[in-house]
Design a protein around this nucleic acid. Structure first.
Lengths: 245, 245
DNA sequence: CCACTAAATGAATGCCATTCATTTATTAGA
DNA sequence: TCTAATAAATGAATGGCATTCATTTAGTGG
């Protein structure tokens, strides 16, 4: 399970959620509900799906520092101010991206098989997706689920599976939150520089820590972030699993 | 090794960091060692300790949105550009604040008593400190320990205690990282709005999740964030504790 | 008293998200 | 077919931000 970690990122699951496929290009004017009133231009250059995929491409190419409203507009061949006809703020752009990414998290394990395996698959995949998008984590943390349909869909799938696995209803949300907290915190670790624990000139003053760091580095195959995540995840699975009736 | 910590940052030149003298701004940092060269003003208005405490006061009063270099300068009765004689960037200000806060984390439990109790005390305290400073979390995550002496000191204390408790040396860093990841993720939860899980109009589409949320709310005394943190922490303590030889 | 230097200044610079009055393009309905 | 309504795009502001830099200020050791 450890090395496979990296794969999860691409693992978009078709059956995961209620979202239609979307056609990210320039024209997918499906939803955007609301009745039409008077004359209404049909060939809009922008919509939320297009903005979302342009934002994702931009992030992939330039990182989150490169995701500015100006750059986003340029990517879409449009004036920056045009974006505000479709999105209330930059935060809403981040929110659209977040919800899109959540749909990539692998919840397929919850359909069948042991609860432990399903949680493992889900957690590794969840971490892998957001490890490449850590600037979204502060956004997610305060995000009312109402504003993120895909995220809500994921919670429904996971909740149903926890109930089926024998969890008492009043513990389900707490267990999910505990797992998510660990997942988000661990996503940051993945991005940490390799020498983050190098004490440098202070090494002599911190002998126990320095020795611990050195013996950690000695083991070769797995990345430190993966080792720590695996360790914590197994502890959580065992400990939380014991709550089942 | 207390406040002397602050030195290293301005370095870059041999022997430059020294800047002792009489009364600095608001809070005096005692001699920072280093040899003196030529003539040198003794009544500096600013130093890193003063900047740190001004930043903390500002954050307490206006939050992290209010912590701008301009506001910080105003607080210290100084021009914004003056700050850059003592600090390389705003990020370094955040770093100073982070290191100061880390010193507030309660590691006293590691001095004696059972490992489990010490970890519990440490983890709750750690979470509580940073729950009020979540904007620092992305900074901490990528922060080389070299740049944060207090943080390094905490790691040394914790590492020594884990070793004494019977942990194999090569698992210590992983165990600490796993705990920290959980702690940082959980710190975000504390700040989440109470209605974060209200599915609103989508409630009908997510019956299991909605029911789980409702039954959670039913239990009154403890905050949801505390319940989740306690649940996860106990699982981690049990699971990680099993690694001890 | 002079040469040296850390520290403070104030005026730029460039980037950013966001706003707004205005224009453009489309279509429903008369 | 003409017209009124309207969504969407524009381009020029606005105000805030961190940061830079040439310059000035003021102590101090020699």
């Amino acid at each position: 399970m450890p090395a496979a970690a990296a794969t999860g990122t691409t693992a978009g699951k078709p059956g995961t959620s209620a979202a239609d496929g979307v056609s990210p290009g320039a024209s997918a004017d499906t939803s955007k509900g609301g009745r039409r009133r008077a004359g209404r231009p049909s060939a809009a250059l922008l919509d939320q799906a297009g903005i979302t995929s342009a934002a994702l491409e931009l992030v992939g190419r330039k990182g989150y520092d490169g995701l500015t409203m100006a750059a986003l507009a340029r990517q879409l061949d449009v004036a920056p101010s045009a974006l505000y006809n479709h999105v209330r703020s930059k935060r809403e752009v981040l929110l659209l991206v977040e919800d899109h990414l959540t749909a990539l998290v692998d919840v397929s394990g919850f359909a069948a098989g042991p609860w432990e395996d399903a949680v493992r698959t889900w957690a590794w995949s969840y971490r892998d997706v957001f490890a490449q998008h850590t600037p979204l984590i502060p956004v997610i943390a305060v995000l009312p689920v109402t504003d993120a349909p895909q995220t809500l869909a994921m919670y429904e799938t996971v909740s149903a599976a926890f109930l089926a696995a024998g969890f008492p209803e009043e513990r389900i949300v707490s267990a999910i939150v505990a797992l998510e907290s660990f997942i988000f915190g661990s996503a940051y670790d993945v991005t940490a520089p390799a020498d983050i624990f190098d004490a440098g000139s202070m090494a002599a003053a911190t002998p126990h820590f320095t020795a611990a760091v050195r013996s950690l580095a000695a083991r070769g195959d797995e990345s430190p972030a993966d080792v720590a995540f695996g360790l914590g995840l197994e502890a959580l699975i065992t400990g939380l699993g014991a709550l089942r009736g």
